[in-house]
Every structure is written in structure tokens, then in C-alpha cells.
Design a protein around this nucleic acid. Structure first.
Lengths: 215, 215
DNA sequence: GTCTATATGTTGATAGAC
DNA sequence: GTCTATCAACATATAGAC
């Protein structure tokens, strides 16, 4: 009993466990989707019992929500920050493409997971833009609109819309990962060659996007 | 009995029903995903009993596969045909963007559905490129490579890779629909304004892509 | 906090009458 | 071909001991 406390102090006892559960849930939810995920698989992966999942998180829905918010917090702020800064458009493109290809290469399951859940769980979408993030998103859109309007006014770029450009930029980074099995099959390449495809994209895409902006 | 035959001739009796089931399954699978779909909902929508689904298609998996192949057959050939033709690159861009934005606007659930399932059901991906379609895909890639190499050689376009360009083109068309709830929430717009967003894209995107190709 | 055992509710699938 | 009734297999969630 006393020994137990020394190994697992009451204050931190479940802290480690809860984090392990979240990590396990993250892995399972992102790979299989919320519908396809099984609490048993999450429990196994976290090396705990199924019942403990319901002790730390009331239900599967709540666990899914916790994972969702954690992922959102790890992705959105950087997008907002990069695109809202005072840097030049070209610099934003470079930074955005490089940062996101790197990040998605490390977490290749994220795109499919996010795109799948936002389409089928409206409550998760609204959770995305609550707290300070709704305002951050609006700030980003406003800043981009101003910046692009100014560049157009100076005749430095073609007349594009901020929303359209942002959709193209984001889609160009995210789509290859979301469509990865399709691309790999169509090109007849394996995981290694797909890595090469992304490395190639890292150089080619920013140049392409900048040319697309030229007047 | 005799009357029954006159109303429902044996040859066509189930033909209509089977088609109704396929349509219902299409609607449910594309909206909810294969994991999230319920045989009961498909049966209700087709106005038949659940047992009949298993009579016409042995299992949920087989029904899902039938729906999948039907959708693939309605999408892929047009892509292959458009991109393999002898038309100029600019013309291909115009035709591709217009055709796919129109088609996806009519079937907005398709992108999420396809991207979700290809990531989690490898068997569906290989089914995609069996029969004649694997060859058609290879022909398209080869043709595009040749065409782009030639244009680069003539100094008419920037040095882009066929695969990269194709990924950008496809992603630019598909992504807005796959990310629709996200875009709508970030911009604070509803379904009607999203329709406007797509109409705007129909004009702006081809111009952007062509500028991206300019040397 | 963590476990074992169990309740409760779905869901895909089958049997068998018509 | 189509229906009603039912089964067997999970999956989420809870009860209760430690």
C-alpha cells in the first residue's frame, strides 16, 4: 500500500494513464474513424481495461471529442498565425507548404480523419470554432482579404479571392495525403516512392502557387 | 398467382427492386460512410425489408462493394478520357474543372465518401484499378507526361511534373467539397453562399491553374 | 484508480412461411 | 421475390470488488 503510493503517487497516478488513453484513442480514432473505432482496441493499446476508459471519459463520444479538440489545438493555431502575420504572400506560401507537408507526413492519418468527421459530426465542427478560435479564423480571413486587395491594387498579383486562394493552398497540401492510396495505386508506387512524391511537392508546389498569383 | 406474374413479370420483378436498393444504399453509404451505414436505413429508404437486402446482395460488404464500383464507373472514365485526349493543356483544365465542379455540386457527399473509404478499405482501392481501368490510368499518366514534357521542351510552360500537376488539379476541385463544413464555418456562410463560392471557383480556378503553368 | 463480470442495446445475418 | 420472426455476435456502458 505504502509502496504503491511511492510508485504511483495519488496526484499523478491517473495522469500518466489518462495521457496514455488519449494517445491510444488518438491513434485508433484517426486510423479507423470514430464509427469504426472500438473501445476495446483503444483499451488494449493503452494497456488498461475497457472500464477505465469510461472512468476517465464518460462515453465514447466524450473521448472522441477530447481527441478531436486536442488535434484541433495542435493544427489550427499555426495556420491562423502563419496566415495572419504581416509577412509577404510569397513568404506565407513557402512557410505554409513546408510546415504542413512536414506535419502531415508525420501524421498521415489526420486528413482523412478530419475530412471524414467534419462531414458527419456537425457538433465537432462548431467545437472547432468555439473559444477564441472563431475570432482567430475571422481575423485571418480579414487580414488575407486586406493583404490580397492591396497587392491587387498595386498590380502585383492577379485578381484572386482570398477564400479561393486559401482553399487552393490548403487543398494542395492536404489532398495528396487524403488521396494517398489512390495516388499510389494510380502511379503504381509504394510508400517509399510516395515519400519522394511529397518531397518533390515541397519544392514544386510553392513555385506553382506563386506563379498562379502573378498578374 | 397468374395475376402476380402480369404485374411483376418474373424477368423484371426484382430488377426494379434491386435498382431501388442500390440507389438507397448509395445514398446511405455516401452520407454515413460504410461503417456508419445501417442496413435498416437502406431498407427503409428502398421501401423493402432488411432480409431482402441480403437476398439480393449476400452481405453488407458485398452491397457496399456494388455501390462503390457503380460510383467508380460513373467518375473515373470521364477523368481518364478528358486527360488522355489530344486537347491542349489549357482546354483540359477548363473542361476538367467545369465538369467536376458541376458533378460534385450535384453529388456533394462523394468526396468525403471516397477519401474515407480508400484510406480504410484497401480492397476497394484495388477493385478500382482492376478490369480495364488500371490500363486506362497508366495511359493517362503516360499521355500527360509526354504532353507536359513536350510543352516544357518548347518553353511554353514551367517545368512541372505531371503527377504533381494532376494532384493539384484534382485536389483543387475535390477539396472544397470535402472540406465544405469547415469552409462554411470559417467563412460564416450557409449552403446558399457556399453555392456561390463554387460558382466563383468555376471561373477563378482555371485561370489560376493556367497562370501556374506559365513559364 | 483499476480490475472482473455483467447488463443492455444494436446490428448483420438467417430460417422459414407465403 | 418478399415478408415476419429470430438468432448470434458484438459494442458500449455500468456494478461492484479490491
Amino acid at each position: 500500500m505504502l509502496l504503491d503510493r511511492m510508485v504511483k503517487p495519488p496526484g499523478q497516478a491517473g495522469a500518466d494513464t489518462k495521457a496514455r488513453i488519449l494517445d491510444a484513442a488518438d491513434a485508433v480514432f484517426t486510423r479507423r474513424g470514430i464509427d469504426g473505432a472500438r473501445m476495446q482496441e483503444i483499451a488494449d493499446r493503452a494497456r488498461v481495461n475497457k472500464a477505465l476508459l469510461h472512468y476517465h471519459f464518460r462515453s465514447k463520444d466524450e473521448l472522441a471529442r477530447a481527441v478531436w479538440l486536442r488535434i484541433a489545438a495542435s493544427l489550427l493555431p499555426q495556420i491562423f498565425e502563419t496566415m495572419t502575420s504581416d509577412a509577404a504572400l510569397d513568404g506565407k506560401i513557402d512557410q505554409f507548404v513546408d510546415a504542413y507537408l512536414t506535419r502531415l507526413q508525420r501524421h498521415p492519418y489526420i486528413p482523412t480523419y478530419i475530412l471524414g468527421e467534419i462531414a458527419r459530426r456537425p457538433e465537432l465542427v462548431s467545437a472547432l470554432f468555439s473559444s477564441g478560435r472563431g475570432a482567430a479564423a475571422r481575423r485571418m480571413v480579414r487580414k488575407l482579404r486586406e493583404q490580397i486587395a492591396e497587392e491587387i491594387g498595386k498590380g502585383r498579383i492577379a485578381p484572386v479571392t482570398a477564400e479561393q486562394f486559401m482553399a487552393t493552398l490548403l487543398g494542395a497540401c492536404v489532398f495528396p495525403f487524403a488521396a494517398r492510396p489512390l495516388i499510389a495505386a494510380a502511379l503504381g508506387i509504394g510508400p517509399r516512392a510516395f515519400g519522394g512524391f511529397i518531397e518533390r511537392r515541397r519544392k514544386e508546389l510553392p513555385a506553382f502557387l506563386k506563379r498562379g498569383l502573378r498578374p
